[in-house]
Amino acid sequence: MDLSALSEAVIQGNIEKAKELTQQAVDAGEDPQILLDQGLIMAMDTVGENFAKGLLFVPQMLRSAKTMQECLAILQPHFQAGSVTSKGKIVLGTVKGDLHDIGKNLVAMMLEGAGFTVVDLGVDVAPEAFVKAVSEEHPNIVGMSALLSTTMPSMADTVRALSEAGLREAVQIMIGGAPVTAQYAEEIGADRYAPDAGSAVIKAKKLVASA
């Protein structure tokens, strides 16, 4: 089966068209694994390359990622349980006292686009709320965002709270936000810092691989 039309729809970020083509292919009895590998993932590789070359803007990339997610939802029931797994799970939130969420939302969208499952705790998230989410969701990574230099200490508090709850070893911790630095990540015992959403995805992949 020729999957170029499907790939093209994903690259274009044409959600309706891509869903329709995926459904048609599934109905025609096409192997979902082939649809995934040669239709969706290959399309996203092209999207990633084009973005890196500066040919695509962020909203275009995010739309393609969303298109892929929607197609994946159609494929999901046709796989035996467990054979399509997410790249990893990340619990993400803006720390206590901080209401800035544009950067955090961007990180969430890019991670989802890259195949991660994101549990977004929103803004003003207290250390206890991170602890609760980790014990319930069992993520690979905890991501924290702070845009205020005054709320950064809450990142340290959260790392400590996770240690006290005995959960620190179970997760990798990644932090970011304009005033946050790599040095600060080291100081508070977080595993990684990423300066922007693009590098957050790369680092998240590495963290999951290294765990």
Partner: peptide
């Protein structure tokens, strides 16, 4: 206090 986003990078 309006501003804009550079949509190439989201800066």
């Amino acid at each position: 206090v309006a501003s804009t986003m550079d949509l190439r990078t989201m800066n």
